[in-house]
C-alpha cells in the first residue's frame, strides 16, 4: 500500500534510514574527535603510568595502584576513571546534540518537511545516538584492553574486593560492563534528548544533561539525604564493579538498570511528547 497522497516512491517508514543518519553524524568532526579521544585515552593513561613514579611505600592501595597489576586491571581503572564524567559527557553529546544541532543549522525544518514524521525522526536520531554511544562504551574498554594486555600482560584481574579472577572469566565479566553502563547511562540519554528537542542550542542540551549529572553526584555526597539518595540517577553509577565480584551481587546492578531505564523512559516520553506537539520555529 502506498501512503495516501504521497509522491511516488515515498513511504514514511523508509524516511531517514539509519544508514543515512549514521553517515550524517559520522561525517561530523565532533563525532570523529570524540571517538578518537576515547581510543586515545588508554594510551595517555599508559603513558602517564610510565612517566610518573609513585614513591609511597606505605598506606593502602588505591584503584590507580592496581591499574598496572594486569591488563584487566588497567581496563578496570580506565572505566573507573571515566564512568562518572567522561562517559556521561559522551552520551550527553551524542543525544543532546542530535536534534538541537539540526535546529541550529535550520536543516531540521527541511527534514520534517521532506517529510520525515516527527516521531520517526526522533526515533532514528535516538537509535543512531544510541549506536554511537554504545560504540563509544565498547571502544574505550576494548582499546584499554589491547593497551593493557600488551603493556601489563594477561594475568589475573584483582577485583575491588580483593579476589583474583582468572583472565578469561574476568574478561567476560568486563565485557558485561558496557552493557550495564549503557542501561545505567540511559537516563543521561533520555534527559539529553529531552533537552535537545527543547532548545536550538546544542551546547545547552549537552551541558544541561552533564550539569544534571554533576548535581546528582553532589547531592549524593550529602549524607543527610539518607535513603532519598537512592532515587538519584547517578546513585548506582559505580555498581558495574559488582560484576567483578564472585558471585555477582545483582542487587545494585538491577537497581541501576531499573533506575536508568525508568528515568530514560520518562525523559524519552517527555521528549517525544514535546517534539510531537511543538511548533518548529528554528
Amino acid at each position: 500500500m502506498t501512503t495516501h497522497g504521497a509522491a511516488p516512491g515515498y513511504r514514511a517508514t523508509t524516511t531517514l534510514p539509519l544508514r543515512v543518519e549514521l553517515v550524517r553524524q559520522l561525517r561530523r568532526r565532533r563525532t570523529v574527535l570524540t571517538l578518537g579521544f576515547l581510543a586515545l585515552l588508554p594510551f595517555l593513561l599508559w603513558l602517564a603510568f610510565r612517566i610518573g613514579r609513585d614513591d609511597r611505600t606505605r598506606g593502602g592501595a588505591t584503584l590507580a595502584d592496581l591499574a598496572t597489576a594486569s591488563g584487566l586491571n588497567f581496563v578496570m581503572f580506565t572505566l573507573f576513571s571515566t564512568v562518572s564524567f567522561l562517559l556521561v559527557v559522551v552520551v550527553a553529546l551524542f543525544f543532546g546534540d542530535t536534534v538541537a544541532s539540526e535546529a541550529s543549522w535550520s536543516s531540521l525544518r527541511y527534514l520534517l518537511a521532506a517529510p520525515v514524521p516527527r516521531g520517526r525522526l526522533l526515533r532514528q536520531k535516538a537509535v543512531v545516538a544510541a549506536l554511537l554511544s554504545v560504540f563509544a562504551l565498547v571502544l574505550l574498554p576494548v582499546v584499554a584492553m589491547a593497551v593493557g594486555v600488551v603493556a601489563y600482560g594477561e594475568t589475573d584481574l584483582i577485583s575491588p574486593t580483593g579476589q583474583s579472577l582468572a583472565f578469561l572469566p574476568a574478561a567476560s565479566r568486563l565485557a558485561l560492563v558496557p552493557a550495564y553502563l549503557a542501561l545505567q547511562l540511559a537516563w543521561v540519554a533520555g534527559l539529553a534528548l529531552l533537552l535537545s528537542v527543547s532548545t536550538d542550542a546544542p551546547l545547552g542540551a549537552v551541558g544541561g544533561a552533564v550539569m544534571a549529572s554533576i548535581l546528582s553526584q553532589i547531592l549524593e555526597t550529602i549524607n543527610a539525604l539518607g535513603d532519598l539518595r537512592d532515587y538519584l540517577p547517578t546513585r548506582f553509577n559505580s555498581a558495574w564493579a559488582d560484576l567483578l565480584a564472585s558471585p555477582i551481587d545483582w542487587t545494585h546492578l538491577a537497581s541501576g538498570a531499573f533506575s536508568g531505564l525508568t528515568y530514560a523512559t520518562v525523559f524519552g516520553l517527555a521528549a517525544w511528547w514535546r517534539f510531537a506537539t511543538k511548533d518548529i520555529t528554528s
Binding site: D65, S159, P160, T161, G162, S238, A241, D249
Partner: peptide, 12 residues
C-alpha cells in the same frame, strides 16, 4: 576490599 572506591571500600 583492598582499595577504596568512591562509595567506600568494596567488601564481600
Amino acid at each position: 576490599g583492598i582499595f577504596g572506591t568512591r562509595s567506600g571500600v568494596a567488601q564481600r
